[in-house]
Amino acid sequence: MSATSFLSLVDWSQRSLWISVASIAFNPTAWNIVARNEYRNKTITRVFGGNARNGCYFLAVLIFSFGMFRDSLFQHALEDQPTQKILPEPLDTIVPAVLFVAGQTFVITSTWALGITGTFLGDYFGILMDHRVEGFPFNVLRDPMYIGSTMSFAAASLWFERPAGLLITLYVYIVYLVALRYEGPFTDMIYSNRASQNAESKKDL
């Protein structure tokens, strides 16, 4: 199938498509802005009386809730799009099922390994991990949560046989790559600053 014929299977006039696209971009963009502000100004921490952990839990609830809302908007967008046979039987059920299970495994196990504060930007609140997590799934993928989420988008698109969903999945992957370009260096800076502070503290002893 050519790119032109593939794009012709997308109903660009559907408002739900563009709402879904906007929500996908909103989430990582908003949380990066909020987290950077928290690192510099401690806005959420101050709202919770100086308790950084409670502030992080509050942000975790927001991120999780908006993530569920984004997924529901994506589901609605798929329902409004034309269907097209993408994979032959029985691959049309096997492939999306495997993708979904693998994707959710990466998401759940990475959350388990990092914990709530490690997953939901706790380092921006000053809640830093003592050691880098190197076990599964981080010994398989550098960013298992983002990859797992992308795989789940692809699984839903293939399961419901919506070519538009695969296009949105590609967009999701690009959005995550852009987000990582900002998240990664900033997080590295946070831990680098802690290392420098620890080194200074040892000198003063």
Rank of each mutant, 00 (worst) to 15 (best):
M1E: 03
S2P: 07
T4V: 12
L7P: 00
V10C: 02
W12H: 05
S16T: 14
I19F: 11
V21P: 04
A22N: 05
I24K: 09
I24M: 14
I24R: 10
P28R: 15
N32G: 15
R36T: 06
Y39F: 15
R40C: 07
K42D: 13
R46Q: 12
R46L: 13
V47H: 10
N51Q: 09
A52E: 13
G55T: 04
C56R: 03
L59G: 02
L59N: 02
F66L: 14
G67H: 04
M68E: 11
F69P: 00
F74S: 06
A77P: 02
K85S: 06
K85A: 12
I86N: 11
I86W: 14
L87R: 03
E89K: 12
P90M: 13
D92A: 06
D92L: 06
I94Y: 06
V95C: 08
V98K: 03
V101C: 05
A102G: 03
A102D: 02
G103P: 06
G103W: 14
Q104K: 10
Q104D: 01
T105V: 14
T105W: 11
I108N: 08
S110K: 05
T111K: 07
W112Q: 07
A113W: 08
I116S: 07
I116P: 02
G118C: 04
G118R: 11
D123K: 04
Y124W: 11
Y124S: 05
F125Y: 13
M129Q: 15
D130F: 05
H131F: 10
V133A: 10
V133G: 01
E134W: 03
E134M: 12
E134T: 15
G135Y: 09
G135V: 03
G135K: 13
G135N: 14
F136Q: 07
P137T: 12
V140A: 12
M145S: 04
Y146S: 06
G148A: 02
S149A: 08
M151K: 00
S152V: 11
F153E: 03
A155F: 03
A156K: 11
W159A: 07
W159C: 02
F160W: 13
E161C: 01
E161D: 11
P163D: 08
L166C: 03
L167D: 00
Y173F: 14
I174L: 12
V175T: 14
L177Q: 12
P185R: 13
F186A: 05
D188G: 01
D188L: 07
Y191F: 14
S192M: 12
S192H: 09
S192R: 13
N193F: 10
S196Q: 09
N198G: 04
A199D: 11
K203V: 09
